[in-house]
Amino acid sequence: MRRRSDEEGPALLDALLEGRPEPGPAARAAAALGLPERGRYAVAVFPAGGGGPAGKTVPADGMRFFRRTRQDRDVLVVALGDEDAAALVPLLGRWCPGPGGIGPVAQGLAGLGAARRLADVALLTCPPGAAGIVRLEERLPAALVVSQPDLSARLVADVFGPLLALEEADRALLLRTLVTWLECGGSAGRAAGRLYCHRNTVLNRLRRLERLTARSLSRPRELVEMMLALSALELSAPSRGVGEAP
Protein backbone atom coordinates (compact mmCIF):
# COMPACT_ATOMS: atom_id res chain seq x y z
CA MET A 1 0.00 0.00 0.00
CA ARG A 2 2.85 2.36 0.80
CA ARG A 3 4.48 1.67 -2.57
CA ARG A 4 1.17 2.37 -4.28
CA SER A 5 0.86 5.67 -2.38
CA ASP A 6 4.45 6.61 -3.32
CA GLU A 7 3.60 6.09 -6.98
CA GLU A 8 0.17 7.70 -6.84
CA GLY A 9 1.31 10.97 -5.23
CA PRO A 10 3.70 12.07 -8.00
CA ALA A 11 1.23 10.98 -10.70
CA LEU A 12 -1.49 13.10 -9.10
CA LEU A 13 0.95 15.99 -8.82
CA ASP A 14 1.61 15.72 -12.56
CA ALA A 15 -2.12 15.76 -13.23
CA LEU A 16 -2.53 18.90 -11.13
CA LEU A 17 0.38 20.62 -12.91
CA GLU A 18 -1.21 19.82 -16.25
CA GLY A 19 -4.59 21.07 -15.05
CA ARG A 20 -6.28 17.83 -16.07
CA PRO A 21 -9.98 17.66 -15.14
CA GLU A 22 -9.80 14.51 -13.03
CA PRO A 23 -12.18 13.98 -10.09
CA GLY A 24 -10.75 14.96 -6.71
CA PRO A 25 -7.00 14.94 -7.58
CA ALA A 26 -6.15 17.69 -5.09
CA ALA A 27 -7.59 15.84 -2.10
CA ARG A 28 -6.01 12.56 -3.19
CA ALA A 29 -2.62 14.20 -3.82
CA ALA A 30 -2.76 15.87 -0.40
CA ALA A 31 -3.40 12.53 1.28
CA ALA A 32 -0.75 10.67 -0.72
CA LEU A 33 1.96 13.31 -0.22
CA GLY A 34 1.10 14.42 3.30
CA LEU A 35 0.36 17.99 2.21
CA PRO A 36 -2.44 20.41 3.07
CA GLU A 37 -4.96 20.56 0.25
CA ARG A 38 -5.52 24.28 0.80
CA GLY A 39 -1.98 25.28 1.71
CA ARG A 40 0.22 27.86 -0.01
CA TYR A 41 2.19 26.62 -3.00
CA ALA A 42 4.54 28.02 -5.61
CA VAL A 43 5.71 26.51 -8.88
CA ALA A 44 9.13 27.16 -10.41
CA VAL A 45 10.23 26.03 -13.86
CA PHE A 46 13.68 25.67 -15.43
CA PRO A 47 14.93 24.39 -18.78
CA ALA A 48 15.43 20.62 -18.62
CA GLY A 49 18.45 19.85 -16.47
CA GLY A 50 18.63 23.48 -15.45
CA GLY A 51 18.20 23.36 -11.71
CA GLY A 52 16.43 22.48 -8.52
CA PRO A 53 17.37 20.12 -5.71
CA ALA A 54 18.89 16.80 -6.65
CA GLY A 55 16.23 14.71 -4.92
CA LYS A 56 12.61 14.42 -5.93
CA THR A 57 11.33 15.45 -2.48
CA VAL A 58 13.48 17.83 -0.43
CA PRO A 59 12.80 19.89 2.71
CA ALA A 60 14.69 23.20 2.92
CA ASP A 61 14.32 26.44 4.93
CA GLY A 62 10.84 25.55 6.19
CA MET A 63 9.62 24.57 2.69
CA ARG A 64 9.15 21.25 0.91
CA PHE A 65 10.16 20.81 -2.73
CA PHE A 66 8.76 18.25 -5.14
CA ARG A 67 10.67 17.93 -8.38
CA ARG A 68 8.96 16.75 -11.54
CA THR A 69 10.57 16.38 -14.97
CA ARG A 70 8.74 17.17 -18.19
CA GLN A 71 10.02 16.88 -21.76
CA ASP A 72 11.64 20.30 -21.86
CA ARG A 73 11.23 21.55 -18.30
CA ASP A 74 12.19 20.77 -14.73
CA VAL A 75 9.27 21.74 -12.51
CA LEU A 76 9.45 22.36 -8.78
CA VAL A 77 6.31 22.37 -6.66
CA VAL A 78 7.08 24.19 -3.43
CA ALA A 79 4.98 23.83 -0.31
CA LEU A 80 5.66 27.24 1.18
CA GLY A 81 4.13 26.81 4.61
CA ASP A 82 4.39 30.22 6.26
CA GLU A 83 7.44 31.29 4.25
CA ASP A 84 7.47 34.30 1.92
CA ALA A 85 7.55 33.33 -1.77
CA ALA A 86 10.22 36.01 -2.34
CA ALA A 87 12.63 33.83 -0.32
CA LEU A 88 12.51 31.29 -3.15
CA VAL A 89 14.76 33.35 -5.42
CA PRO A 90 17.92 33.26 -3.26
CA LEU A 91 17.14 29.72 -2.13
CA LEU A 92 16.87 28.36 -5.66
CA GLY A 93 19.95 30.38 -6.54
CA ARG A 94 21.94 28.01 -4.33
CA TRP A 95 21.11 25.15 -6.67
CA CYS A 96 21.34 26.76 -10.08
CA PRO A 97 22.19 30.06 -11.81
CA GLY A 98 19.02 30.00 -13.92
CA PRO A 99 17.29 30.99 -16.00
CA GLY A 100 14.19 30.08 -14.05
CA GLY A 101 10.66 31.40 -13.61
CA ILE A 102 8.39 31.40 -10.56
CA GLY A 103 4.63 31.77 -10.82
CA PRO A 104 2.31 33.46 -8.32
CA VAL A 105 1.39 31.73 -5.08
CA ALA A 106 -1.41 29.19 -5.48
CA GLN A 107 -3.87 28.98 -2.62
CA GLY A 108 -4.22 25.22 -2.67
CA LEU A 109 -3.12 22.23 -4.72
CA ALA A 110 -5.98 22.75 -7.18
CA GLY A 111 -4.26 25.95 -8.34
CA LEU A 112 -1.00 24.28 -9.38
CA GLY A 113 -1.95 24.12 -13.06
CA ALA A 114 -2.47 27.87 -13.35
CA ALA A 115 0.66 28.56 -11.27
CA ARG A 116 2.72 26.31 -13.57
CA ARG A 117 1.45 28.01 -16.73
CA LEU A 118 2.32 31.44 -15.31
CA ALA A 119 5.74 30.16 -14.18
CA ASP A 120 6.32 29.14 -17.82
CA VAL A 121 5.47 32.70 -18.84
CA ALA A 122 7.90 34.07 -16.23
CA LEU A 123 10.65 31.88 -17.68
CA LEU A 124 9.93 33.24 -21.15
CA THR A 125 10.64 36.77 -19.88
CA CYS A 126 14.31 35.82 -19.41
CA PRO A 127 16.22 37.13 -22.46
CA PRO A 128 18.21 34.64 -24.57
CA GLY A 129 21.43 33.69 -22.82
CA ALA A 130 20.37 35.26 -19.52
CA ALA A 131 20.85 33.72 -16.09
CA GLY A 132 18.94 34.49 -12.92
CA ILE A 133 15.59 33.44 -11.48
CA VAL A 134 12.61 35.75 -11.86
CA ARG A 135 9.17 36.02 -10.29
CA LEU A 136 6.19 36.76 -12.51
CA GLU A 137 5.07 39.62 -10.28
CA GLU A 138 8.32 41.44 -11.03
CA ARG A 139 8.09 40.93 -14.82
CA LEU A 140 4.46 41.68 -15.67
CA PRO A 141 5.09 44.09 -18.62
CA ALA A 142 7.51 41.61 -20.20
CA ALA A 143 5.04 38.79 -19.45
CA LEU A 144 2.37 40.65 -21.42
CA VAL A 145 4.80 40.96 -24.33
CA VAL A 146 5.80 37.28 -24.46
CA SER A 147 2.20 36.15 -24.04
CA GLN A 148 1.25 37.79 -27.34
CA PRO A 149 4.15 37.12 -29.74
CA ASP A 150 2.29 38.18 -32.89
CA LEU A 151 1.26 41.50 -31.37
CA SER A 152 4.75 41.97 -29.93
CA ALA A 153 6.32 41.54 -33.36
CA ARG A 154 3.85 44.05 -34.76
CA LEU A 155 4.70 46.50 -31.97
CA VAL A 156 8.46 46.19 -32.63
CA ALA A 157 7.94 46.78 -36.36
CA ASP A 158 5.67 49.76 -35.75
CA VAL A 159 7.83 51.47 -33.11
CA PHE A 160 11.36 50.53 -34.17
CA GLY A 161 10.98 49.83 -37.90
CA PRO A 162 13.13 52.78 -39.13
CA LEU A 163 15.62 52.22 -36.32
CA LEU A 164 16.10 48.56 -37.27
CA ALA A 165 16.93 49.62 -40.82
CA LEU A 166 20.10 51.39 -39.61
CA GLU A 167 23.58 49.90 -39.68
CA GLU A 168 24.06 47.48 -36.78
CA ALA A 169 26.61 49.59 -34.89
CA ASP A 170 24.47 52.74 -35.21
CA ARG A 171 21.33 50.89 -34.11
CA ALA A 172 23.12 49.30 -31.14
CA LEU A 173 24.44 52.69 -30.01
CA LEU A 174 20.98 54.27 -29.96
CA LEU A 175 19.38 51.30 -28.22
CA ARG A 176 22.15 51.14 -25.64
CA THR A 177 21.65 54.84 -24.94
CA LEU A 178 17.90 54.33 -24.50
CA VAL A 179 18.36 51.34 -22.19
CA THR A 180 20.91 53.21 -20.07
CA TRP A 181 18.73 56.33 -19.88
CA LEU A 182 15.80 54.23 -18.67
CA GLU A 183 17.97 52.41 -16.12
CA CYS A 184 19.10 55.82 -14.84
CA GLY A 185 15.52 56.95 -14.26
CA GLY A 186 15.48 59.33 -17.23
CA SER A 187 18.57 61.23 -16.10
CA ALA A 188 20.73 62.22 -19.07
CA GLY A 189 23.57 63.20 -16.72
CA ARG A 190 23.71 59.83 -15.00
CA ALA A 191 23.35 58.02 -18.31
CA ALA A 192 26.27 60.05 -19.71
CA GLY A 193 28.44 58.94 -16.80
CA ARG A 194 27.70 55.30 -17.49
CA LEU A 195 28.17 55.69 -21.24
CA TYR A 196 31.40 57.71 -20.88
CA CYS A 197 30.13 60.60 -22.98
CA HIS A 198 28.79 64.14 -22.52
CA ARG A 199 25.23 64.78 -21.32
CA ASN A 200 24.46 66.61 -24.56
CA THR A 201 25.57 63.55 -26.53
CA VAL A 202 22.96 61.47 -24.70
CA LEU A 203 20.28 64.08 -25.37
CA ASN A 204 21.19 64.25 -29.06
CA ARG A 205 20.97 60.48 -29.41
CA LEU A 206 17.60 60.43 -27.66
CA ARG A 207 16.26 63.18 -29.94
CA ARG A 208 17.40 61.19 -32.95
CA LEU A 209 15.65 58.13 -31.54
CA GLU A 210 12.47 60.17 -31.14
CA ARG A 211 12.64 61.26 -34.76
CA LEU A 212 13.18 57.71 -35.99
CA THR A 213 10.31 56.28 -33.93
CA ALA A 214 7.97 59.29 -34.33
CA ARG A 215 7.44 59.12 -30.57
CA SER A 216 8.34 61.41 -27.70
CA LEU A 217 10.01 60.14 -24.54
CA SER A 218 8.27 62.96 -22.65
CA ARG A 219 4.77 61.67 -23.47
CA PRO A 220 3.85 58.86 -21.03
CA ARG A 221 1.76 56.84 -23.48
CA GLU A 222 4.42 56.94 -26.19
CA LEU A 223 7.13 56.16 -23.65
CA VAL A 224 5.17 53.06 -22.55
CA GLU A 225 4.93 51.95 -26.19
CA MET A 226 8.69 52.33 -26.59
CA MET A 227 9.41 50.44 -23.37
CA LEU A 228 7.12 47.54 -24.33
CA ALA A 229 8.65 47.42 -27.81
CA LEU A 230 12.11 47.46 -26.23
CA SER A 231 11.15 44.48 -24.05
CA ALA A 232 9.83 42.62 -27.09
CA LEU A 233 13.01 43.37 -29.01
CA GLU A 234 15.21 42.29 -26.11
CA LEU A 235 13.36 39.00 -25.71
CA SER A 236 13.75 38.18 -29.39
CA ALA A 237 17.35 39.39 -29.76
CA PRO A 238 20.49 37.25 -30.01
CA SER A 239 22.09 36.23 -26.72
CA ARG A 240 24.37 39.29 -26.59
CA GLY A 241 21.30 41.44 -25.76
CA VAL A 242 19.69 44.63 -27.03
CA GLY A 243 22.04 47.53 -27.51
CA GLU A 244 25.19 45.54 -26.79
CA ALA A 245 28.03 46.39 -29.07
CA PRO A 246 28.72 43.83 -31.81
Score class of each variant (00 low, 15 high):
E244I: 00
P21Q: 03
A60G: 01
G189N: 05
R190D: 07
A119L: 02
G111V: 11
V146C: 11
L92M: 15
D82N: 12
S147A: 12
R190Q: 13
R68Q: 08
V242S: 04
S5E: 06
S216A: 15
F65N: 04
A153L: 08
R67H: 13
A42Y: 04
A86I: 12
A48T: 05
G193I: 14
T69I: 08
L195T: 11
G132F: 01
L173G: 01
A54C: 01
A32E: 07
P47S: 02
Q148G: 06
V105G: 03
P47F: 03
Y196G: 08
L195Y: 04
L144I: 08
R70C: 00
A54K: 09
L136Q: 03
D14R: 15
A87E: 08
V159F: 09
L163P: 15
A229Q: 05
K56A: 01
E37G: 10
C197E: 02
M226K: 15
A27E: 14
E168V: 15
A142F: 09
S147Y: 01
A32Y: 10
L35P: 14
R221N: 09
L166E: 13
L175F: 03
G113C: 10
H198I: 02
M227H: 05
R135A: 04
D6F: 04
R67L: 13
R3C: 00
P238W: 01
V224R: 15
K56V: 01
A44N: 07
A157P: 11
D150Y: 03
A191K: 03
A122Y: 07
G241I: 12
F65P: 11
T213A: 14
R68I: 05
R208F: 06
A85W: 03
L178V: 04
W95R: 14
A232Q: 06
P99Q: 03
L173M: 12
A110W: 11
A229P: 13
V105C: 09
E222G: 13
A143K: 12
G129S: 02
S218M: 15
L163S: 12
R171G: 02
E167F: 05
C96W: 06
S152N: 06
G161C: 14
T69K: 07
L203F: 09
G189F: 03
D158N: 09
V134D: 00
L228Y: 08
R2T: 07
L12I: 13
R70G: 06
A15V: 11
A143H: 11
S231V: 05
S236F: 00
D6M: 13
R67D: 04
N204T: 09
F66N: 05
L12Q: 13
L178M: 05
G243H: 08
A131Q: 03
L124K: 15
L174Q: 05
I102C: 05
S231D: 13
P128C: 06
L124Q: 14
A85V: 15
A229C: 09
R139M: 10
V89R: 15
L144F: 12
